[in-house]
Computed example of a mutant assay.
Amino acid sequence: MRFGAALDLRYEVPIDEFVDLVTGLGLDHVELRQGYLDVHPEAPTPRELRELAADRDLSYTFHAPFRGSNLANLNEPLREAAVDGVKRSLDTALAAGAGAVVVHGGSVPRRYPDRIRSIARRQAVRSLRECAVHADEIGMHLCVENQRRKESQERNTETPARLASFLDDVGVDSPYLGVTLDVGHAKVTGVDVAEYVETFGDRIRVVHLHDNDGQRDSHDVLPEFRQVAERIGAPFNVLEMKSIADIERCVAG
């Protein structure tokens, strides 16, 4: 099992400095946000990332675009662009030697009529199917994340049952299509982590670790993150914190 932290877009540090911080805390994994790589003026190339990982005995996961990107987009050119963004992240992750790419499953406003919400779900299924086929072809794990329930948005992955149904409809039978379990999203949605473990088992390849009060997705510190991760048993376990200081607090216990 690898333990590490996500390099959030809010962290004003270069990747090599973040790696130094993470490894200095005794961690050995970094999740790279595509949004960070897209905007950082000195973002390393995949080859440089691979060399950095080899030098520090480090592993990576990637997070595909999600701000402004929606696999359930009702507009076909925008849906295609969202798919292309995920495929590019898969290719970059492969070149960097990463272990998986995390992806969101798409959403649609709940206020829309049933007919529109059904169309949006079909769009999301098509999109993820295209991404999953590409992941299988290149041999890179694509892991669909459970998102928290929101009053304003209907999400395809907010409960174990919805996520399982979504993956069934995608219908790609591949060892490279898996699950990211976000324990904070599960908690704020009112779902016990054990339900995800029971439903998906070793399909869970990535775990996002943070805490909340059960009301807001506040990404609070989770000092017992190792114990939580041990209950799940996934290869890659990622602290998702709002600040570097919170990562340090988690590790300090």
Rank of each mutant, 00 (worst) to 15 (best):
R2W: 11
D8W: 15
Y11N: 14
E12M: 12
D16E: 15
E17L: 12
T23I: 06
T23Q: 12
D28Y: 02
D28M: 04
D28E: 12
Q34D: 09
Y36Q: 12
L37S: 06
D38H: 11
V39A: 14
P44C: 09
P44N: 06
P46E: 10
P46Y: 02
E51M: 07
E51Q: 11
A53I: 11
D55L: 04
R56P: 13
R56L: 13
T61W: 08
F66P: 00
F66M: 09
A81K: 12
A81M: 02
A82I: 05
A82H: 06
D84L: 07
S89E: 12
D91E: 15
L94P: 00
A95P: 01
A98H: 09
V102G: 00
V103H: 06
Y112K: 10
D114K: 09
R117L: 01
R122A: 14
L128C: 12
L128V: 13
R129G: 07
E130G: 01
C131D: 11
C131N: 00
C131L: 12
V133T: 07
H134N: 13
D136T: 02
D136P: 04
G139Q: 04
L142G: 04
V144K: 05
V144R: 07
N146H: 09
Q147I: 04
R149P: 02
E151Q: 10
Q153N: 08
E158K: 05
S165M: 03
T180L: 15
T180N: 15
D182T: 12
G184A: 11
G190R: 14
V191G: 02
V193R: 06
A194Y: 04
E195K: 12
Y196G: 03
F200T: 00
F200E: 02
H208L: 07
H210A: 13
H210C: 05
Q215C: 10
P223Q: 13
P223W: 03
P223R: 08
F225M: 05
F225H: 13
V228H: 01
I232C: 06
A234W: 03
P235Y: 00
F236L: 14
L239T: 02
M241T: 13
K242R: 15
I244N: 00
A245K: 03
A245C: 04
D246S: 10
